[in-house]
């Protein structure tokens, strides 16, 4: 019995923007099945009426003073860019050709 189908993994891989071949999808589906089966036990815990915790030490509205600080220079921000032009990141076409 397989809870996670290959098509489902293909959909998730597309959402996560990771190209995967047929073989990789099959392997990932089989592995995820085992892992999801193991982690699904969280639903069996006595969690009725228990509030969720997102963060071990609760904090809220952590703000700094609204003053100008020095950040990275444009050169520093671009120094690791795969492609840059005129002080900007350069990327391939955004829109599909077809």
């Amino acid at each position: 019995m397989s809870a996670i189908s290959r098509d489902q993994v293909a959909h998730l891989a597309n959402l996560a923007r990771i190209e995967m071949g047929d073989q990789e999808l099959d392997l990932m589906a089989a592995e995820l099945d085992v892992i999801v089966d193991a982690v699904a036990s969280v639903a069996e815990a006595p969690i009725q009426d228990v509030p969720p915790t997102s963060h071990p030490i609760a904090m809220s509205n952590v703000l700094r003073e609204d003053v100008v600080e020095e950040g990275l220079t444009s050169e520093e921000a671009l120094m690791n860019a795969p492609d840059a032009e005129d002080g900007q990141f350069k990327v391939p076409a955004i829109l599909n050709e077809d």
Binding site: V9, I35, V36, V39, V42, A43, V50
Partner: peptide
């Protein structure tokens, strides 16, 4: 593997069952 598992755990229809339940277990 971890990125795909996380994408699955957060996806519509599974959120309460996985990520939501996990956060409650964290409280326990």
């Amino acid at each position: 593997r971890r990125i795909i598992l996380g994408t699955y755990a957060l996806s519509a229809g599974y959120y309460d069952q996985y990520y939501g339940a996990a956060q409650k277990v964290r409280t326990l």
